[in-house]
């Protein structure tokens, strides 16, 4: 009997001992469970810690995570460059348009102020011109400010697109390649519309206009910035015709000497006068 009851006694003793020893721990555990089970009590305990951490992040986020965020953004931008551009393009377009409109308004205001306050001979002449021509005086001032500038001028062999002469205000581009590409564009357009007697006469790219005057075996392309009125366009056409009559009709053989001669004359007639002004 003794041998059988001994383990039971041991168990009982062990349980009692546990109860005594763990009583305090169990009470604490129960308290913790109550806190965890009750959202209000839990919030009371945890919220200050979260707020503290959030405060820390607000103050230190750029410092702590700048490198990681930069890396992620850079990777995303690189990976989705086309998509980003597609999204940005209309936004940029609107911003640029808004900026240009604003600048135009500022310029117009300045011109109006100038027109109202000037009593110089130049202003009187402009006023008379405005009365006789029936053109708004502001428009006259604007046309003087935003007049056309010849940036590049080329004489190009009509079929081959080879350059026969050129002059440039800034010398920034490969003129042989431009001559070739212009001829390719002309050929493409003229071929596409299949009008044998008609030629491409204008190309516009942003604020640049390419004015083309066609002749039998060559054509002259004038790259211009600024605005070009119909009257200025006619005047340019006449200047080109005069140049052709005086300088190009006498050339029978196109060699290096002829090309140099044409280039020098283009510079003399069209580019140099602008530099002098």
């Amino acid at each position: 009997m003794t041998r059988i009851n001994k383990p039971l006694d041991d168990d009982l003793l062990m349980r009692k001992l546990k109860n005594v020893l763990l009583k305090e721990d169990r009470e604490q555990l129960m308290q913790l469970k109550e806190v965890l089970d009750d959202p209000n009590q839990l919030s009371e305990k945890v919220n200050p810690l979260i707020e503290q951490r959030l405060d820390f992040l607000k103050k230190n986020f750029p410092k702590e995570y700048r490198l990681v965020v930069n890396q992620i953004v850079e990777e995303r931008l690189r990976g989705f460059q086309d998509e980003v551009l597609n999204i940005m393009y209309p936004v940029l377009g609107k911003m640029i348009r808004k900026y240009i409109t604003h600048q135009f308004q500022l310029m117009k205001d300045r011109i109006d102020t100038t027109v109202r306050s000037t009593f110089s001979i130049e202003a009187l002449k402009r006023k008379l011109k405005s009365v006789f021509l029936g053109v708004n005086e502001s428009d006259l001032v604007m046309s003087q400010i935003d007049g056309p500038v010849i940036e590049e001028i080329y004489v190009i062999q009509r079929n081959s697109g080879l350059l026969l002469g050129s002059a440039s205000l800034n010398n920034t581009i490969d003129q042989d390649v431009i001559a070739g590409m212009l001829t390719a564009i002309k050929s493409f357009v003229e071929d596409a519309f299949q009008r044998e007697s008609e030629d491409l006469e204008r190309i516009q790219y942003g604020s640049y206009k390419i004015f083309i005057q066609n002749y039998h075996s060559y054509y002259i392309a004038v790259v211009m910035s600024g605005s070009l009125s119909a009257k200025e366009s006619d005047a340019l056409s006449t200047r080109l015709s005069n140049f052709t009559d005086k300088e190009l009709t006498q050339i029978s053989n196109i060699d290096n000497e002829a090309i140099q001669h044409i280039s020098s004359k283009l510079n003399e007639y069209f580019v140099q006068p602008q530099r002098n002004n």
């Binding site: 009509r158 079929n159 070739g180 390719a184 050929s187 071929d191």
Partner: peptide
């Protein structure tokens, strides 16, 4: 002056004006 033209299955489809003066 090299003109790199868009490929066509047969040459008669290439605009003839591209070949002028070549």
């Amino acid at each position: 002056l090299l003109w790199d033209i868009a490929g066509e299955v047969t040459q008669d489809k290439v605009p003839t004006s591209y070949f002028l003066g070549a």
